[in-house]
């Protein structure tokens, strides 16, 4: 008996040490991606062929205020004030989105598709209810994001993103507004700096078009999508 105690002790200690040493934390493969490093600004992308829009200036974008106006300088100061007071959470959000807006919005789409890829439960009479876009919150929730629906959803969103970005680049080249960190060196570049004109913001354009499309495709998720947008 006495000889056994040390053996038990060793085993118990080993088990505890093992548990402490192997953390159960799991991270996704894109959780810690480095910021996107564009190889090319594609400054002439505003001339690329469009899919849905007839012309890149179908949607008018107002001329930005000159960089020497008081309004613009006030905006720069506002940015600097925000940058001084960034929380860790905000910094990690910036890092998250710096990996690439197209990638992150695609991940969010995949999440919605996975969440809604559930067949409806049959009714008592053995027939199957059909999700209704007119009443998306009733069971079965709209949509049933089965592969055909998902494929169309990805296609619509990708085409809309592409056209929106072509239009964005069209106005970028038209207005050639330098980025705030080019105008005022005390503004920090929080993502990879480029020579790309900053107006209109490609991230804002992408977020706007993607979120609006998502709300159409997944109407019950408007609340969550709006949250991501903000």
């Amino acid at each position: 008996m006495k000889k056994i105690f040390p053996i038990i002790l060793v085993i118990v200690t080993g088990v505890i040490a093992f548990q402490l040493s192997c953390s159960k934390n799991i991270s996704g493969r894109t959780d810690d991606l480095a910021p996107l490093q564009p190889q090319n600004d594609d400054i002439n992308a505003g001339t690329w062929k469009l899919v849905l829009l007839p012309r890149p200036d179908t949607f008018a974008v107002a001329i930005p205020a000159a960089t020497n106006t008081p309004g613009y300088i006030a905006d720069l100061n506002e940015i600097k004030a925000y940058q001084h007071n960034l929380t860790g959470d905000q910094e990690s959000k910036i890092k998250y989105w710096a990996a690439g807006g197209v990638l992150r919005w695609n991940e969010l789409m995949r999440e919605l598709v996975a969440k809604y890829n559930l067949p409806p439960y049959q009714k008592d009479d053995g027939t199957y209810p059909i999700p209704s876009s007119a009443n998306p919150f009733a069971y079965p929730q709209f949509p049933f994001a089965n592969p055909p629906y998902a494929a169309r959803a990805y296609a619509y969103i990708s085409a809309a993103q592409y056209d929106a970005l072509v239009a964005c680049w069209y106005y970028k080249k038209l207005y050639t507004r330098p980025a705030p960190y080019k105008v005022d060196s005390s503004v920090l570049a929080k993502v990879t700096p480029t020579d790309l004109p900053s107006y209109p913001s490609e991230a804002a354009v992408l977020a706007g078009v993607t979120a609006e499309m998502m709300k159409l495709l997944f109407p019950t998720e408007i609340g969550n999508i709006q949250q991501k947008l903000e």
Partner: peptide
């Protein structure tokens, strides 16, 4: 990848 109450872009399951 798999979905629990959210998307997990990994093949590891906690």
């Amino acid at each position: 990848s798999y979905y629990t109450t959210e998307m997990h872009l990994t093949n590891k399951v906690d």
